[in-house]
Design a protein around this nucleic acid. Sequence first.
DNA 1: CACCATTTGGAACGATTGTTCCATGAATTA
DNA 2: TAATTCATGGAACAATCGTTCCAAATGGTG
Lengths: 193, 193
Amino acid sequence: MPWEKRFDIDQTLNRAMEAFWARGFEATSMQDLVDVTGVNRASLYATYGDKRDLFLAALRRYDSEVRRRLLDELGARETPPRAVAAVFDKFIRQVTQPDGNWGCFLINSALELAPHDPEIAAMVNSAQDDIEAFFLAMIRKGQQSGDFPEQLDATYLARQGLVTVLGLVVMIRSRPEEAYLHAIRDGFLSRLT
Amino acid sequence: MPWEKRFDIDQTLNRAMEAFWARGFEATSMQDLVDVTGVNRASLYATYGDKRDLFLAALRRYDSEVRRRLLDELGARETPPRAVAAVFDKFIRQVTQPDGNWGCFLINSALELAPHDPEIAAMVNSAQDDIEAFFLAMIRKGQQSGDFPEQLDATYLARQGLVTVLGLVVMIRSRPEEAYLHAIRDGFLSRLT
DNA sequence: CACCATTTGGAACGATTGTTCCATGAATTA
DNA sequence: TAATTCATGGAACAATCGTTCCAAATGGTG
């Protein structure tokens, strides 16, 4: 092995992820990626493949390091009611950050690319299934701990939780009114009491 | 007035609307629009302005001729329970059509463009408000007619209806399983009984 | 020190992007 | 019929697209 790459592969992928996350696949050019990563064109191609390969790597990274990591931390650290609320709050908090209101990278990709790209559709679906499973686990855990009533239909409400999050994230893209978004969150939480 | 345009202005705008609806703003080129409309470049520019102007016109047309028209017809022709269900069914039916699963043009635009374009954000928001108002009107009408219980919180449920539709339309883009989508619809309808 | 394998910088590729220009065509008006 | 007015077809624009190529630079290896 003659020598190593001069740039940080993980950090570069994070920067690319943020660019795709903020603007989408089509609106992000390779030149944009060269600019935000500070890495040369040839190096990007040699390391990650073409634009779609890089996008897929970025989306995989988001799925594992942002989405999955968040759910893992919430599931481990918070009580079920707080964990469920925190999922909503994570997105609602975005709207107050002027240049960070990017929504959810997976949902953005679902709308832009999933219908035309089965590989992306599969990633989106498994992520949605995982979020539903997270809600299901939290609700059941909450029922055992006494936080939620026993007679709740956990399966049904887990699915409702997923749909509510998806709807909320759509709203976030055009609607910066926090009160409205909190009402959506509380509307779902009230069904768990 | 020397003579008229050789092409149908409304029909051409409909074709452009379908193209933008199916693929989004960035992924649809002016060449695509020339191809699907059959109208010359210069005529498109002379009639509608630049690409963004044409997109805005297409989105306005969708809002008035697809979304608003659907709600008007359902509100006039159907009973409240059937009208509410039909909103969901309109989208669910899409997934069975191989090349017609475009979701909702307004929601697609909300995700792709609203954060970067205030004019589009405003259109998306007013459309969402209108859908919520539709649900509210239907629920109240249903309460008067006896279809829905009097004690329902109509305001709250109207908002929940909007969120549920938005979530469902996100799912449609990657998830063709009709049974799953029907469960979402029925999950909301059951809250109106 | 010479050799090697690989990254790097940057030019360059052809294709496509959104947009404009102009000569031609056609229908109305004088 | 002649003049006018505007849409039309198609070439052409500069800019940017994703991608590739190559010479220069690099640091470990024999």
